[in-house]
Each structure stands twice: as C-alpha cells, then as structure tokens.
C-alpha cells in the first residue's frame, strides 16, 4: 500500500479523505493484522475492532501535519500505531486494576499517541462544552478545511458570507471562553 498516495488523497479534499477512511476500515488484511495482534495479547474482539478504527483515525490526523511522511508501507505504519495504542491501553488497564493478570509492558514511545494527552483533552473539552452547538458544528467543519461554500450547504446557511461571519463570531467566542479559563492559560505555559 503506497503510503504517500493515501496521504495525498487525505489532504486533497474532505470527500477524498472520507473515501480513504472507508477503504482502510474495510481492508481485510489491515483488520486481520490488527485482530491477530490484539487477540494474541489479552484483547477481545471488541478491543481489536476499536483499535482498528483508532489506528485509522490516528493516521488521518497525522496526514494534516505538513511534515508528515511515512518511510515504510502504510500497512506497517498502521500496525505500529495499533501496537502502541494497544500497549498504552494495557498499561492503563494494569494501572487501574493492578490485580489483573496482564503482561508487564514498557512505555510506548510512538509520538503519534502523545498528540493530545488525557489531561489536556479534558480541559479542552471543558472549554469547548461552553460553545453552543451551532458554533461547535461550524468550527468542526472549518477545522477540517471545508470551504465556506461547503459549510453553508452542509448547515443550510444562505451563503458562504453568512458562514464566514458565523465562524468569525464563534472563534471570538472561543477566545473569550479561553480567557475566562485561567487554569488553561496556566497549563499552556507548562505545556500539558
């Protein structure tokens, strides 16, 4: 599987990205690799299904970084992500349930899964939770590089200009919410 081809397709458009996600999710070999690994390492079928989806999500997110490239095949890359995600999960389960008979595992070193830590995520969600639903929806679409015209169609707004104003308002609102959240600013300095 040519990794660069997939990366280019993800970056091309939202439609193209969604096609890639579906292709990867339905790929039997990728799913089998993931299942084989998770099931052989104390995981259930449900765990394997979750990891399969999570590895693809992680890949898609990484594609939006301009410096992202893969030196191996996409298959190997996704297996690496699966492995690290699963080791992280096992580590967390063992920490939460020390009596569980789970294998000892070392800390995963893959930076992919360290993009947003759990603690930081909780603070971000706390602030985002104060945005109204429409703002959240507009910003979710905008954050995925959707053009104003497409967002207008998606959300039944009368024109791209209306969307632009809405987006501007929502970002301004988000900044206000951040300013009202001193712990976040303080945490930013410590880089969560």
């Amino acid at each position: 599987m040519d990794a660069q081809d997939y990366i280019d397709r993800v970056r091309r458009s939202l439609e193209s990205r969604n096609e890639v996600m579906r292709e990867l999710y339905e790929n039997k070999q990728l799913r089998s690799n993931c299942h084989k690994y998770v099931l052989s390492n104390s995981g259930t079928k449900e765990d394997a299904d979750t990891l399969h989806a999570e590895s693809i999500i992680s890949f898609i997110q990484a594609c939006y970084r301009p410096d992202f490239n893969i030196r191996t095949t996409l298959e190997n890359y996704l297996f690496g992500v699966t492995r690290n995600l699963w080791l992280s999960t096992l580590r967390k389960r063992k920490k939460d349930n020390p009596t569980d008979n789970l294998p000892d595992i070392e800390d995963p070193q893959n930076p992919e899964i360290l993009l947003i830590s759990t603690e930081k995520r909780a603070i971000l969600y706390e602030i985002l939770g104060k945005l109204d639903d429409k703002c959240r929806e507009v910003l979710i679409l905008w954050a995925q590089n959707l053009k104003m015209k497409s967002i207008a169609t998606e959300m039944n707004y009368s024109s791209p200009e209306v969307v632009r104003k809405k987006k501007h308002f929502c970002l301004k609102r988000l900044i206000e919410l951040i300013d009202d959240h001193p712990p976040y600013r303080a945490a930013l300095k410590g880089d969560l």
Partner: peptide, 21 residues
Amino acid sequence: ILEPFVDLLAEEGIRAEMQKI
C-alpha cells in the same frame, strides 16, 4: 492558543465520519 482546540475539533469531525462508517 486556539490551535489545540482546532486540532481537537478536526479530530471530532474525523471520529464522526469513522462512526458513520
């Protein structure tokens, strides 16, 4: 300051699409 939020919002969009699939 906004960037982590933008990343998280983009992630929500990706997850929503994955859930649909």
